[in-house]
Nucleic acid binder design. Structure first.
Lengths: 153, 153
DNA sequence: ATTAAAAATGTATAAATTTGCACACTAAAT
DNA sequence: ATTTAGTGTGCAAATTTATACATTTTTAAT
């Protein structure tokens, strides 16, 4: 249970999850069996250059250095990594991706041909997903999980 | 002493100085004669998307969204000139631009990282701007004014 | 002008993060 | 084996940031 492996774990957790506080991160770390305190995480985060920013939905999120979220992660293969955020607004789902990745991800969604999804519009780094009438947000999110489940490895 | 001017001031102070805490920022704001509290700054910073990162020397520093410091990021001519029309429909704002300019303008909007704006989708000559829930049309228009104020000079 | 609704702000307080300090552990040197 | 220097950590206090609530100000509508 070395410091090094803890740092690696933290980096991965932060990259792959929306983590809003060190307490949350602590819980996730403990879930893997490792043990430490929030104070240690504070020091680790500084060492890793991971800082707290905004998640785009009014909440907070720890972000890897070098700015842009999952940008470092390539799309080829895992489209999930190319989805950097999702926000519901006005009954529509906005999906964020690194610049240039939106249409690639949108194509994946369209190809799935799900009834619940009326259609999508892709910009450069944002996809607007229009749910069919009377379909719940939850149903759409389930859809997406299903669609991208395949490449979670 | 409007909120708008305070936000502009904060943005400038953060861009031009190494500010390590909201208390420090508060002092600088007060030095200019404006008056407010730390609580207000906390809210302003969130709205501006300004988050606390590391200054590379063991300390902290507030950083503008989009990371990069100086970030000149010029748009061919003035972005304002590239907006040829705006229409509200179904709670969404449709912004018209000359062919090919949509994404350039949209990027400017996205980079601002404004809370009120959930996201944008750019086509070739039209941008669909989606306001966050419970944000008024007026608030959005104010946002846009602020965002493009800089190049009206 | 009056009322209603929304936005902004300060105060007080809560929540979250950072840090001083003491101690434990390791590795190298004596 | 003992000492010394360095690193890492927990604990608890200090600091910093966020928020609930009440109040004021602004804006919109009648």
């Amino acid at each position: 249970m070395s410091k090094t492996s803890r740092l690696a774990l933290i980096e991965r957790l932060v990259r792959e999850n929306v983590i809003g506080s060190q307490e949350d991160l602590l819980r996730m770390v403990e879930d893997t069996g490792m043990k430490c305190t929030q104070a240690t995480l504070s020091r680790d985060l500084r060492q890793l250059g991971i800082s707290r920013g905004f998640d785009g939905s009014g909440g907070y999120r720890y972000l890897l250095p070098g700015g842009r979220e999952g940008e470092a992660e390539a799309l080829p293969g895992s489209a999930t990594a190319a989805i950097t955020g999702m926000t519901w607004a006005r009954g529509l789902l906005l999906i964020s991706t690194p610049p240039g990745f939106a249409s690639a991800v949108a194509i994946r969604i369209d190809r799935a041909g799900r009834y619940e999804i009326a259609g999508t519009v892709a910009g450069d780094d944002t996809i607007l997903l229009i749910p069919r009438d009377n379909i719940s947000n939850e149903a759409i999110e389930e859809c997406l999980k299903t669609i991208f489940k395949s490449d979670i490895k």
